[in-house]
Design a protein around this nucleic acid. Sequence first.
DNA 1: AATAAATGAAGTGTCGACAATTTTGCACGT
DNA 2: ACGTGCAAAATTGTCGACACTTCATTTATT
Lengths: 229, 229
Amino acid sequence: MALNTPTLETPVTTADKIFDLMLHAIVDGTIPSGNKISEPELAKQYEVSRSTLREALNRLEKCHLIERKANVGSRVVECTIESLLEIYVVRESLEGMACRQAAIHMTDEEITDMQNMLKQHATSQALKDGVAYYQEEGDLDFHYKVILGSHNKQLINILCGQLYHLVRMYRIQFGMNSPRATRAFDEHSRIVEAIKDRDGELAELLMRRHIAASRKNIEKKIAQLNTEI
Amino acid sequence: MALNTPTLETPVTTADKIFDLMLHAIVDGTIPSGNKISEPELAKQYEVSRSTLREALNRLEKCHLIERKANVGSRVVECTIESLLEIYVVRESLEGMACRQAAIHMTDEEITDMQNMLKQHATSQALKDGVAYYQEEGDLDFHYKVILGSHNKQLINILCGQLYHLVRMYRIQFGMNSPRATRAFDEHSRIVEAIKDRDGELAELLMRRHIAASRKNIEKKIAQLNTEI
DNA sequence: AATAAATGAAGTGTCGACAATTTTGCACGT
DNA sequence: ACGTGCAAAATTGTCGACACTTCATTTATT
């Protein structure tokens, strides 16, 4: 149920496993953002050949988690505020559309499944009411389900395969367990309602507002941080 | 000026060159859509080692032009109507947002540059007036400029780096030099106007309509084809 | 005869070594 | 002391060979 393993396909080849390991290491900051990646060093560390490591690097590049320059090398993508805001712009656009498509294409079963998930969030939120972290996990879960509900492979690929790792990385590294938990939950509820009503236009509008609100929340925090200093 | 080389970075390494060659081969159908890719065969054909070829395959996978399954192999992505329509949905969303961002972030120079390009399209269109192909190139050029105008790296990456090769592939393989040339030109003009007025909301709306119109045009054609048979 | 197991061929994944490029460090000269 | 140029070291790109998986054909068993 919970989104503990963000990699959908089970790793079969060793390059897959190295990819998984490095993915988590980069997302949680074990391999710091902006760091240069030494192929020989990491190959030795993970006890694989350089070819295998490079295969993993290729997939990390596909997720926009590392950047490569020919004959120079790879480095972990830099976590900047600008980049974070850019991602939110893309999410607002894409997840909004995903939400519209979900209102069109989701099956009734999928919708009730999502409603049940929300109910569960409601109770667990009531229990821990102040604690935002769990709700954050639930937030990811919710967005995930909406995206899959679009039944649009291109959308799913871009959002789940690429952007979401970046989103998780920023959340963890910037420590953004935002205090928007209860408000986010209300917003989720309304979105589900719109989807249930098959009102694609409203669903898109609400999702865009929801994500834009998160973005503005971040912008506000940044502004506060800047004035405090 | 024209978009003859869709690869932005000049290829330096041999894997880059093989990637370029295969990219064009796949886009124009020399390597047919849906085909299985034999690594030993293609390596011999391009006269490179399998490692180098695999490096190129990795980048093609990044563009969603091929799909890989572990221990089984790669095949060129299948050109289906459903997938084409899915791409248009993503484009409507992302390019709409790119257009909104362009209205915010484009410099005055970039805007006048785009206006000049449109003027040039107008004259060359008057000359060839019936011929749609050139306008199609111009269409891609226009969209390209808007995307770059968003100044959003994430958007640029996804649209120019990944989706646009797919779009070109479908255009060429489905022979979609659509008769919307003159109408598309008018729509482009209005979009530029909105950007010039710094009206992001309108710019996004117009771009979404523009792309949605293309999509509906395709849907109509498909419907016609189905009734004719 | 039909299904299942086995065997072989073909293809993909992984490895270590070599070639080409970039970076580093040192010597030299101004 | 500083900048320039060269040489050596380190790193990336490329190659060919080997290991393992998958698929097809053949063989054996019920």
